[in-house]
Amino acid sequence: MAVLHTCVERLKSEIDRQILRLLRENLSHREIGARLQPPMKHGTVTTRICRVAKKLYPCLVEHGYDKDQAIAIMREKGVEK
């Protein structure tokens, strides 16, 4: 999903991008925290993921995804943009 990747690459924080890369590996928050350098507590990882996810939403909207479309993507699992 190109738009999503574009939005991720736009993130200024390298740590945020690193967290999202680890998120793609299907790890727990605790495991993500342990793999970061320096390591981060899992609660901090949770908060950070939430913040990053919130940052990504406006970017998706900017690229033409509104809330309904995002929900439709989740439900249909097959819309490419």
């Binding site: 996810a53 919130k54 809330k67 989740m74 699992k77």
Partner: peptide, 23 residues
């Protein structure tokens, strides 16, 4: 959509509905 992207979209949509103090 591959699974990691789908999960990230789900996280984004969920995050817009919660506050940090609710984590």
């Amino acid at each position: 959509i591959n699974q990691p992207d789908l999960r990230l979209i789900q996280a984004i949509m969920a995050a817009t509905r919660i506050e940090e103090h609710e984590l």
